[in-house]
Amino acid sequence: MILVVGGAGYIGSHLVKELVEKEKVVVLDNLSTGHRAAVDSRAIFVEGDLGNEEDLQMIFKSYPIKAVMHFAAYSLVGESVIDPLKYYQNNVASTLTLLKIMLKNNVKNFIFSSTAATYGIPDVELIDETSATKPINPYGHSKLMVEQILADFSTSYGLQYVVLRYFNAAGAHQSAAIGESHNPETHLIPIILQQLLGQREKISVFGSDYDTEDGTCIRDYIHVTDLATAHIRALEALLTGKKEAEIYNLGNGLGYSVKEVIETCEKVTGVKANVEMADRRAGDPARLVASSKKIFEELGWKAERNLERIIADAWKWHQNQTY
Rank of each mutant, 00 (worst) to 15 (best):
E21P: 00
M58A: 15
V258I: 15
T212C: 05
V163F: 01
Y74S: 05
E47F: 10
T229F: 07
G179D: 04
T212E: 02
T118L: 04
V81A: 03
G179L: 07
F45M: 13
I127R: 01
Y256H: 15
H223K: 06
F153N: 14
K242Q: 05
T216V: 11
L31K: 13
G9R: 03
S291Q: 08
F167L: 09
L3H: 05
S32L: 15
N249V: 00
R309A: 11
Y157Q: 15
V275H: 11
E185Q: 13
A151S: 14
E79S: 15
V107S: 08
V224K: 07
H173M: 05
E129V: 00
H182D: 01
Y161G: 02
I136K: 12
Q174P: 11
D226A: 05
E213T: 10
E180Q: 12
L239F: 01
G9S: 01
R165C: 00
T322Y: 08
L56Q: 08
A312R: 15
K294Q: 03
S32W: 10
K24R: 13
G283C: 03
E53I: 13
S32T: 15
D313W: 09
R287A: 00
A245R: 11
V46F: 14
K243Y: 01
H173E: 12
A228L: 02
Q89L: 15
S181M: 14
H231C: 10
H182T: 04
Q160Y: 02
R287E: 00
M102K: 11
L96K: 09
G7V: 03
K259W: 08
F153I: 13
H187G: 02
T186W: 04
T97Y: 11
L144T: 03
D226H: 02
K66M: 10
L299P: 01
L299R: 06
E260M: 12
I203Y: 07
A72P: 04
L254K: 15
K293Q: 10
E21S: 09
T264K: 14
E147C: 05
V268E: 08
G171T: 06
I59M: 10
G7S: 02
A312M: 14
E54I: 14
K302R: 14
G158K: 15
K242S: 00
I222S: 11
G207F: 00
G253W: 02
N109G: 00
I2R: 09
S142W: 03
S292F: 03
L193C: 11
S156H: 15
V20W: 01
Y10G: 05
K242I: 00
G283F: 02
